[in-house]
Nucleic acid binder design. Structure first.
Length: 255
DNA sequence: ATGTCACCTGGTAGGTGA
């Protein structure tokens, strides 16, 4: 079984690349972030035509998430239950015996900004919800654009980024709190090449210089841990014409 | 190098967010 997450930075622009990637990789589920489409503009027909099922949760201009799967997702949840959020950042559904939670975590902009306050509140609400969700659905995968680099080895220049957004102790504390729920960072189950990133700024020739961050993650619950067979970052789409600034992160599980 | 990209409003650019 294969699962993946990809921040596409506008599905209107990246739909052809998503269709190509689905065709090549044949995942059981792919969660998208930053679709940047209202629900009425979502390209469901094109995905269904290609043989996929999809549920989505969007808004105007910003954010927006989707869950694409070979089998129709059930028990679909949009946003964090009980957390009143005007921003479309979460979609969850049950696929092939797994609870799949896709999230576009707030960026936070800067540690002294209002957006950072929102980010921390959102992270707390996510944690509180997932604690309950794991009781209902022990076989759970949380994946998406976390906008958190968990450790210094996830940052191309940890000295320059120390205390900056994505790297603050508060954000990293929240990441650890998610692990404390019994989740594991699938990427770190395996030996990985050093300087593995999932995002490279469009500016500064960052991809060419491999100056990036690992901020897109796949976390698996304890009952799934022993069945994880591989996890990686697919840099190929980042080399496309008109790429997203993020690369897909994928996971394989024994059936 | 504050060097890009995507989207909005409202207009043939400027602002916002990432």
């Amino acid at each position: 079984m294969k699962l993946a997450t990809w921040n596409v930075n506008s599905l209107a622009v990246r739909l052809p690349q998503v269709l190509d990637w689905l065709s090549a990789q044949q995942p059981d589920a792919l969660v998208l972030q930053e679709t940047k489409l209202t629900d009425d503009k979502f390209p469901a027909a094109a995905l269904v035509e290609a043989g996929w099922q999809v549920v989505w949760h969007g808004q105007k201009t910003y954010n927006g998430v989707a869950l694409i799967s070979r089998v129709q997702a059930t028990e679909v949840v949009r946003n964090i239950p009980g957390f009143d959020d005007p921003q479309a950042r979460v979609i969850a559904g049950s696929v092939a015996g797994l609870r799949v939670v896709g999230g576009y975590f707030p960026n936070g902009q800067a540690p002294d900004s209002d957006k950072f306050v929102y980010k921390l509140g959102w992270l707390q609400a996510l944690q509180d919800w997932l604690r309950q969700e794991l009781l209902q659905h022990p076989r759970l995968v949380l994946m998406g654009d976390f906008n958190i680099a968990p450790e210094d080895r996830d940052v191309f220049d940890p000295i320059a980024w120390a205390g900056q957004i994505h790297c603050t102790p508060q954000e990293r504390g929240h990441f650890q709190a998610l692990l404390g729920l019994g989740l594991s960072d699938a990427f770190r189950i395996f030996e990985q090449p050093p300087k593995s990133w999932s995002w490279w700024d469009y500016r500064n020739l960052a991809f060419r210089k491999n100056q990036g961050l690992r901020i897109d993650h796949v976390l698996v619950s304890q009952p799934l841990l022993a069945g994880v067979t591989a996890c990686g970052i697919d840099k190929l789409p980042r080399k496309n014409e008109r790429p997203s600034d993020h690369a897909p992160v994928w996971l394989t599980l024994a059936d």
